[in-house]
Amino acid sequence: MIKKTALYKQIQQQIREKIISGRLRPSDRIPSEQELMDEFKVSKITVKNALTELADEGLVTRIQGKGTFVAADVKLAGTSSMRIAAPNALPLIGFTIPTMKTRVIQKLVDYMEFHLKEAGFQMILSITRESAAEESKSIRDLVDAGVQGLIVFPTEDEKYNESLLRLSLDKFPFVFIDRYLRNIETYTITSDNLGGAYDTVSYLLGKGHRHIALISPENANTAVEDRTTGVEKAYIDQEISIDKNLWCHVPLDILRSDRALAYITDFLQGHKSITAAFTLTEEIAQLTSQALQSIEGQTNVELISFDDPGIPNVAYVQQDEREMARAAVSLLRDQIMHAYAPQSVVVSVQLIFP
């Protein structure tokens, strides 16, 4: 398969060659952003990224309101060597996250900063607060700030985001982490969500549980979808019928309000036959634990969570946040340095017992 050079790198290469050959002289004006967009049939994001990197190399100077010009002190072909990097400037990488509330994301931020710094990058963090509109704005702002790549932890209810689709079409370096959009072909890093859920439910079925509640946010992103698929597969492989009346997918508008605990409590009160509950996030696990404690006769329900809920004596599926961060940085660096070739990495999980 022939690998294509990223579009923004094609723009850089053409301008760089014109400067080195002398066709563009010191202080000459570079074609405008609109002219480059029309010539290469690309978005403004792609052009901005190309020009920002050329400025970082010291080849061009960008002047607000006037345009981009060949740097006055650049050395041309036939003269002494050209200045190729801005002094003391680490390349910037943007990391967008939906929240800082969960242990998983807190660990990812910590490990991501470590591995980016180790790779010679500086991280800019942006919190989208589970808003697709805020996510789009964050992406635009980060690109305008001159980031050379993006790592994106999508919002909880994301189905389609034009800004992310545009990044993919422009082959701008970016990686989805944890969640991703199925309609966008790009680089992804995820935990083994399906396998983790499969192992958990297989364990519960093996212990003889037949009335297992599945409690989770509504099926609005790939992480929840894949975990739900893992639950179904465990039943199918053991040839045990599923009672989906014991499934509770909490609508996101309720989950983000003060009504979530009452919603889960009402569900559990209406299903007193439940002997075990598998929750697909740590937040849902904490709410479910509170609900079970408040209902007479249901304190002996066996609770297992995807991710550590911080509840004593509760088993959980543990993700490897360190490896996820390391792999994300590795894939991003490959995009920046080499040709564009989308791929997905699935990181193993482990069922942890208290």
Rank of each mutant, 00 (worst) to 15 (best):
L7C: 06
L7S: 05
Q10L: 13
I15T: 07
I20Q: 13
R23L: 14
L24Q: 09
R25G: 01
P26I: 06
R29F: 01
I30F: 06
I30V: 13
E35N: 09
E35V: 13
K41E: 12
V42A: 04
S43C: 06
K48V: 09
N49E: 02
N49D: 08
T52S: 14
T52Q: 12
T52K: 10
L54N: 09
L59H: 07
L59E: 06
T61E: 15
G65L: 12
G65W: 11
K66I: 02
K66S: 04
G78I: 09
T79H: 05
T79I: 00
M82E: 05
P87R: 15
G94C: 10
G94D: 07
P98S: 02
M100A: 09
M100K: 12
T102I: 06
Q106I: 03
D110S: 11
G120A: 07
Q122A: 08
I124W: 01
I124D: 01
S126R: 11
S126D: 01
S126L: 03
A133W: 08
S136A: 13
R140L: 08
D141T: 14
D144N: 14
G146D: 01
G149P: 03
V152M: 02
F153I: 00
T155E: 09
L165T: 09
L167N: 11
F172L: 12
F176M: 01
I177M: 15
R179P: 00
L181H: 08
T186C: 08
T186D: 04
Y187S: 08
S191A: 14
D192K: 05
D192M: 02
G195H: 02
G196I: 06
A197G: 08
S202M: 06
Y203R: 12
Y203M: 15
H209G: 13
V224G: 02
T228K: 10
V231P: 00
I240W: 03
I242D: 04
D243M: 04
D243C: 10
D243P: 10
L246G: 07
C248A: 12
L252P: 07
R256C: 02
S257C: 06
D258V: 10
D258A: 11
A260R: 08
A262K: 12
T265D: 11
D266M: 09
S273D: 10
A276C: 07
A276W: 10
T281L: 00
E283M: 12
L287D: 06
L287K: 12
T288E: 05
L292H: 05
L292Y: 05
I295W: 14
G297S: 15
N300I: 00
L303V: 07
L303Y: 11
D307F: 02
P309L: 11
P312K: 13
V314H: 01
A315T: 05
A325D: 05
A325P: 03
R326P: 00
A328S: 15
A328F: 03
A328M: 08
L332C: 01
L332D: 02
Q335V: 10
M337H: 09
A339E: 12
A341K: 15
P342G: 11
S344C: 04
S348Q: 14
